[in-house]
Simulated assay, not measured.
Amino acid sequence: MSTAPSSPATSSEFGTLSEEHWIEPLNDGSHVLIRPLKPEDRQREADFIAGLSAEARHFRFLCSMREVSPALLDQLMAVNFKDSVAYIAVAHQDGKLIEVGVSRYAVGGDGEQCECAITVADAWRHRGLAVALMRHLIETARRNGLKQMFSLDSAANTGMHELVRFLGFTTRQDPNDATQVIHTLSLQPGA
Protein backbone atom coordinates (compact mmCIF):
# COMPACT_ATOMS: atom_id res chain seq x y z
CA MET A 1 0.00 0.00 0.00
CA SER A 2 2.94 2.35 -0.16
CA THR A 3 2.92 5.26 -2.53
CA ALA A 4 5.71 7.58 -3.59
CA PRO A 5 5.71 11.13 -2.22
CA SER A 6 3.60 13.57 -4.13
CA SER A 7 4.76 16.70 -5.85
CA PRO A 8 3.01 19.76 -4.44
CA ALA A 9 1.89 21.90 -7.31
CA THR A 10 1.32 24.91 -5.07
CA SER A 11 2.36 25.92 -1.59
CA SER A 12 0.47 27.69 1.16
CA GLU A 13 2.23 30.96 0.25
CA PHE A 14 0.52 31.00 -3.13
CA GLY A 15 -3.07 30.35 -2.24
CA THR A 16 -5.69 29.06 0.08
CA LEU A 17 -6.49 25.46 0.89
CA SER A 18 -9.11 25.43 -1.85
CA GLU A 19 -6.36 26.16 -4.42
CA GLU A 20 -3.94 23.40 -3.34
CA HIS A 21 -3.30 20.52 -5.68
CA TRP A 22 -0.83 17.69 -6.09
CA ILE A 23 0.35 15.45 -8.90
CA GLU A 24 0.46 11.97 -7.37
CA PRO A 25 2.50 9.12 -8.84
CA LEU A 26 0.72 5.82 -8.23
CA ASN A 27 2.21 2.37 -7.69
CA ASP A 28 1.62 1.32 -11.31
CA GLY A 29 3.45 4.37 -12.73
CA SER A 30 0.31 6.30 -13.63
CA HIS A 31 -0.37 9.78 -12.24
CA VAL A 32 -3.45 11.58 -10.97
CA LEU A 33 -4.18 15.15 -10.01
CA ILE A 34 -5.53 15.50 -6.47
CA ARG A 35 -7.26 18.76 -5.69
CA PRO A 36 -10.16 20.17 -3.67
CA LEU A 37 -13.67 19.49 -4.90
CA LYS A 38 -15.09 22.55 -6.67
CA PRO A 39 -18.69 23.59 -7.47
CA GLU A 40 -18.06 22.96 -11.17
CA ASP A 41 -17.34 19.29 -10.32
CA ARG A 42 -21.01 18.57 -9.60
CA GLN A 43 -21.63 16.52 -12.76
CA ARG A 44 -18.21 14.88 -12.48
CA GLU A 45 -19.11 13.76 -8.91
CA ALA A 46 -22.51 12.43 -10.07
CA ASP A 47 -20.84 10.53 -12.94
CA PHE A 48 -18.23 9.11 -10.55
CA ILE A 49 -20.88 7.74 -8.18
CA ALA A 50 -22.94 6.38 -11.09
CA GLY A 51 -19.87 4.55 -12.39
CA LEU A 52 -19.16 2.75 -9.11
CA SER A 53 -20.07 -0.90 -8.71
CA ALA A 54 -23.11 -1.67 -6.55
CA GLU A 55 -20.75 -2.97 -3.86
CA ALA A 56 -18.61 0.20 -3.90
CA ARG A 57 -21.72 2.40 -3.61
CA HIS A 58 -22.98 0.24 -0.75
CA PHE A 59 -19.66 0.46 1.10
CA ARG A 60 -19.53 4.23 0.61
CA PHE A 61 -23.09 5.08 1.63
CA LEU A 62 -23.87 2.01 3.80
CA CYS A 63 -27.05 1.43 1.80
CA SER A 64 -28.07 0.28 -1.64
CA MET A 65 -28.77 2.93 -4.26
CA ARG A 66 -29.01 3.00 -8.01
CA GLU A 67 -28.29 6.69 -8.48
CA VAL A 68 -27.43 9.70 -6.39
CA SER A 69 -30.38 11.95 -5.59
CA PRO A 70 -30.12 15.72 -6.18
CA ALA A 71 -30.41 16.24 -2.39
CA LEU A 72 -27.51 13.87 -1.67
CA LEU A 73 -25.45 15.49 -4.41
CA ASP A 74 -26.16 18.91 -2.85
CA GLN A 75 -24.87 17.57 0.47
CA LEU A 76 -21.75 16.06 -1.11
CA MET A 77 -20.94 19.30 -2.93
CA ALA A 78 -21.34 21.49 0.19
CA VAL A 79 -17.71 21.86 1.26
CA ASN A 80 -16.19 24.92 2.92
CA PHE A 81 -12.62 23.64 3.58
CA LYS A 82 -12.91 24.18 7.33
CA ASP A 83 -15.84 22.14 8.69
CA SER A 84 -16.12 20.05 5.54
CA VAL A 85 -13.32 19.14 3.15
CA ALA A 86 -13.30 17.03 0.00
CA TYR A 87 -10.42 16.14 -2.30
CA ILE A 88 -10.93 14.49 -5.65
CA ALA A 89 -8.47 12.61 -7.82
CA VAL A 90 -8.87 13.19 -11.53
CA ALA A 91 -7.24 11.51 -14.51
CA HIS A 92 -7.52 11.68 -18.29
CA GLN A 93 -9.49 8.86 -19.87
CA ASP A 94 -10.50 8.77 -23.53
CA GLY A 95 -9.68 12.48 -23.90
CA LYS A 96 -11.82 13.46 -20.94
CA LEU A 97 -10.93 14.44 -17.37
CA ILE A 98 -12.77 12.06 -15.02
CA GLU A 99 -12.98 11.66 -11.25
CA VAL A 100 -11.35 8.42 -10.09
CA GLY A 101 -11.44 8.91 -6.31
CA VAL A 102 -12.63 11.16 -3.52
CA SER A 103 -11.82 11.61 0.17
CA ARG A 104 -13.77 13.85 2.50
CA TYR A 105 -14.44 14.74 6.09
CA ALA A 106 -17.09 16.60 8.07
CA VAL A 107 -16.45 18.04 11.53
CA GLY A 108 -18.67 16.83 14.37
CA GLY A 109 -20.59 19.03 16.78
CA ASP A 110 -17.74 19.10 19.31
CA GLY A 111 -15.39 20.74 16.78
CA GLU A 112 -12.58 18.33 17.71
CA GLN A 113 -13.29 15.27 15.61
CA CYS A 114 -14.33 14.56 12.05
CA GLU A 115 -15.93 11.70 10.21
CA CYS A 116 -14.14 10.72 7.03
CA ALA A 117 -15.01 8.73 3.94
CA ILE A 118 -13.08 7.61 0.91
CA THR A 119 -14.10 6.04 -2.38
CA VAL A 120 -11.93 4.94 -5.29
CA ALA A 121 -13.28 3.89 -8.69
CA ASP A 122 -13.22 0.13 -9.09
CA ALA A 123 -10.67 0.25 -11.94
CA TRP A 124 -8.31 2.45 -9.89
CA ARG A 125 -8.09 0.29 -6.76
CA HIS A 126 -4.83 -1.30 -5.57
CA ARG A 127 -2.67 1.46 -7.05
CA GLY A 128 -2.02 3.51 -3.88
CA LEU A 129 -4.66 6.13 -4.70
CA ALA A 130 -6.64 5.61 -1.48
CA VAL A 131 -3.47 6.10 0.58
CA ALA A 132 -2.62 9.32 -1.27
CA LEU A 133 -6.14 10.74 -0.90
CA MET A 134 -6.30 9.88 2.80
CA ARG A 135 -2.87 11.32 3.56
CA HIS A 136 -3.92 14.71 2.17
CA LEU A 137 -7.19 14.53 4.12
CA ILE A 138 -5.41 13.63 7.37
CA GLU A 139 -2.88 16.44 6.94
CA THR A 140 -5.66 18.96 6.33
CA ALA A 141 -7.54 17.78 9.44
CA ARG A 142 -4.37 18.22 11.48
CA ARG A 143 -3.76 21.70 10.05
CA ASN A 144 -7.35 22.60 10.95
CA GLY A 145 -6.68 21.62 14.57
CA LEU A 146 -8.85 18.51 14.74
CA LYS A 147 -7.92 15.91 17.34
CA GLN A 148 -9.50 12.75 15.97
CA MET A 149 -10.73 11.28 12.69
CA PHE A 150 -13.11 8.34 12.44
CA SER A 151 -14.90 6.33 9.80
CA LEU A 152 -18.01 4.19 10.17
CA ASP A 153 -17.81 1.28 7.74
CA SER A 154 -19.29 -2.06 6.83
CA ALA A 155 -17.54 -4.91 8.64
CA ALA A 156 -17.40 -6.64 5.22
CA ASN A 157 -15.32 -3.83 3.63
CA THR A 158 -11.93 -5.56 3.66
CA GLY A 159 -10.32 -2.91 1.45
CA MET A 160 -11.10 -0.24 4.04
CA HIS A 161 -9.78 -2.47 6.84
CA GLU A 162 -6.44 -2.80 5.00
CA LEU A 163 -6.24 0.93 4.26
CA VAL A 164 -6.93 2.15 7.79
CA ARG A 165 -4.59 -0.41 9.35
CA PHE A 166 -1.84 0.81 7.00
CA LEU A 167 -2.55 4.44 8.00
CA GLY A 168 -2.51 3.70 11.75
CA PHE A 169 -6.23 3.76 12.59
CA THR A 170 -7.58 1.51 15.34
CA THR A 171 -10.74 -0.52 14.72
CA ARG A 172 -13.57 -1.59 17.00
CA GLN A 173 -17.01 -3.08 16.53
CA ASP A 174 -19.84 -0.56 16.32
CA PRO A 175 -21.74 -1.06 19.61
CA ASN A 176 -25.01 -0.11 17.88
CA ASP A 177 -24.70 -2.31 14.78
CA ALA A 178 -22.84 -5.64 14.57
CA THR A 179 -22.54 -5.30 10.77
CA GLN A 180 -20.42 -2.14 11.10
CA VAL A 181 -17.05 -1.13 12.53
CA ILE A 182 -15.59 2.20 13.63
CA HIS A 183 -12.04 3.09 12.58
CA THR A 184 -10.37 5.87 14.63
CA LEU A 185 -7.16 7.86 14.18
CA SER A 186 -5.68 10.27 16.70
CA LEU A 187 -4.52 13.41 14.91
CA GLN A 188 -2.39 14.67 17.81
CA PRO A 189 1.39 14.87 17.33
CA GLY A 190 3.19 11.78 18.53
CA ALA A 191 0.04 9.63 18.56
Rank of each mutant, 00 (worst) to 15 (best):
M1D: 11
M1F: 11
A4P: 08
S6P: 03
P8K: 07
T10P: 00
G15M: 10
T16G: 12
E19N: 07
D28P: 08
G29L: 07
G29W: 06
H31N: 13
R42F: 06
A46L: 07
A50G: 08
G51P: 02
R60E: 13
S64D: 06
M65P: 11
A71P: 00
L72Y: 04
L73P: 00
Q75L: 08
L76H: 02
V85S: 10
I88C: 08
H92T: 01
Q93S: 07
I98F: 05
G101T: 06
V102Q: 11
Y105M: 14
A106E: 06
E112Q: 15
Q113F: 12
C116D: 06
V120F: 15
D122C: 02
A123S: 10
V131C: 03
M134D: 04
T140Y: 01
R142F: 08
R143C: 09
N144A: 14
K147Q: 13
S151E: 11
D153F: 01
S154H: 10
G159R: 11
G159Q: 01
M160P: 06
H161S: 07
L163P: 00
G168Y: 07
Q173C: 13
P175Q: 09
N176W: 13
D177P: 02
Q180C: 13
Q180N: 07
V181L: 13
I182Q: 12
L185A: 05
G190W: 14
